[in-house]
Each structure stands twice: as C-alpha cells, then as structure tokens.
Design a protein around this nucleic acid. Structure first.
Lengths: 160, 160
DNA sequence: ACAAAATAGTTTACGCGGAAATGTTTTCCA
DNA sequence: TGGAAAACATTTCCGCGTAAACTATTTTGT
C-alpha cells in the first residue's frame, strides 16, 4: 500500500529541482495515487483496471478488431494477446477470425462477459465518482479537459 | 449494418463511454505519450527515466536515506533495492550504513555518478523543455499546477 | 501473375514494479 | 530492564508490459 507520508522532518525538504515541474514525474505520481484509490474501492471485486477497460469498451461497441482496440487503448499488440487470452480463458471474451480479412481477430463479449460488465458497472461508476472527490469539481474538470487535449482525445462532439 | 461494418474506418469512432472522462485512463494515455517523447529524445543515451530521476535527486541532496528517497519518489522498497543495486553495479551510486541508525542505508553518488549526471544534465533539461512543447505554455502550466495540487506536491502557492 | 513489401497477430525472452515473508536493528512500555 | 512491536532493507515469487523475431495473410509494384 502507499504509505501516507509519515514525513520525518528531513523528508519534506528533499530538493527535487526541476523534477517538481516535470510532466512525466507528475503524471507518474498522479497515476500511482489513482491506482491506489482504485484498489481501495475495488480490491475485493477481483477486477483489474486494464481488464475491465477492455470489457467495457467491448460492451459499448459490440465487436472490434483486436488491433483497433489495442491502438485506441494504447496497448501494445504483444500485451494485447496476453490480456485477451486471459479474458478468453475466464470465459468473458471470444475471438473470431474476421471474414473480410483473415489476418484480423474480431473480439466480442460472451454472454458471461456481458453479464460480468453489467454486474460490475455500479462499482465502476462509483470509482469514477470517487475519482472526482480527489479534487474540487472545477479542478477535476480542468484537469481532465487538459489531459484530453494533451492525449488527443479531444473529440468533443459525438456524431450527431 | 451497424458501426462495425468497416473496422478500418470505425477506429476513430469507437465509443469509450465514461472512459473518456476517467482520470485514471487519461493519466495512463498521457504517461504513454510522455514516455514515448522521452525515448525519442534520449534513446541513444542509455538512460531510463526512473534511474536518472534517482541520480538527479541524489545530486541535489548529497546523501539520502534509501527509504526517504523511496517515499518521495513513490517507489516501493522492494523495487528500490533492485534499482539501487543496478546503479551501484554501474558504479554510479554508493551505499553506506547510517551511523545514526544501522537499519537505514544512506545513498550518495560516486564521483562517476556525479560526472554522469553532469554529462547528461543538458539532455535532461532539453527533455523538460520538449515536454512543454507538447502543449501551449499556459496549458502546460495549468496542467502541471493541477497535478502538483493533486499529488500533494503543492510546495507553494502558484501565485495567482 | 507473382515476388516483394506491408499488415495482423503470436511467441519468446527480458526488464520493470509490487506483495508477502524474512532478517536485522531500534523503539516502546509494562 | 526485557520482551513485544515497529521500522528498514532485502529476498523470493509473481504479474504487467515491451521489443524482437516469427507465422500467416493481404496488398503492391512491375
């Protein structure tokens, strides 16, 4: 677990120099913090962030090519194979060779996978609202907005 | 047919649902992006972010207890031991049992370590300025400011 | 048409990072 | 004071994630 800074006197005064303005360093610290919050909430559920994200996106899109999903989630192909294999073994996801291009593998949820997502959706949404509580509402919106722009996810208008 | 008819063109329109507002998801994407930028710049230098961060902080503080350094950088003790061992083996860092408390290990740079940091400081600073170019200046400052507050690194007020 | 290049996914081998258990030293307090 | 509890580092074991090499398909160039 992440120790709450039992800040001995010297520890608070450690000089970080330009590190404290480094985006990479700050992003890492922030991610560690969110990760801790995730497991505080969902430790007992047997869910891991990456796995549930994959199931979630599949549940929203029905069926997707494995490669497309990998690119959208910034998951490398090698890792994707293992991630999907785990979920297939768990009976939540099924692979099917695409009929249009026999190189690609189409992924979709099994009935069990659909049920799994439905069962855990409340905890997932609860975590999102809990994320918000780590900052003031306006700071949270500002932060996610900047991150969306930074990551190129600024697709604000859904096809309308 | 529905949205899946053509997976190649559908990639930009994959539905992410509440994921696109999830802080954890966005932080992960952002970190991947910064990580890529780091290796674009410093691939040939044989530097890895975590290792150089450790050397950097040591160079600014002279000597630190291993545990303090771990807490400040949010590195788990188990990982810290391995990280330090690598740097000791590389001749850049030296361990010394603390005189005051023989449980703690004090870390400091070797002369070679000091020289290493000095040699690579320009590339390190260049990467920081390059990080800034991934966003507009005001967005960058806003983002890092919010992250500092979020991570509890709010060392002082960002005089408003 | 057909060899060369490109693309999708898998396999293999390895490094990063963490949890739990261990050994040692220090602190606490009865 | 002496023994239990805590703190620090390390070791062992395991999962996450990537790079590089490989197989199988499709596309492309001539």
């Amino acid at each position: 677990m992440n120790q709450v800074a039992r800040t001995t006197t010297a520890e608070a005064e450690i000089e970080l120099g330009s590190l404290s303005g480094s985006l990479g360093f700050l992003l890492r610290l922030a991610q560690v913090r969110v990760f801790d919050a995730f497991f505080e909430d969902l430790a007992g559920e047997g869910i891991k962030p990456g796995e549930f994200t994959l199931l979630w996106v599949l549940s929203l899109n029905g069926s997707l090519a494995q490669g497309s999903l990998a690119r959208v989630l910034s998951i490398k192909p090698a890792h994707m194979t293992k991630l999907v294999s785990r979920l297939v073994k768990a009976g939540l996801v099924q692979r099917a060779p695409s009929r249009e291009d026999r190189r690609v593998v189409d992924l979709s949820l099994t009935p069990e996978g659909t049920d799994f997502v439905a069962r855990h959706k409340p905890a997932f949404m609860a975590f999102h609202t809990r994320e918000r509580d780590l900052l003031s509402p306006e700071d949270f919106d500002a932060l996610t907005g900047l991150l969306r722009r930074f990551t190129g996810l600024e697709k604000e208008d859904t096809c309308r």
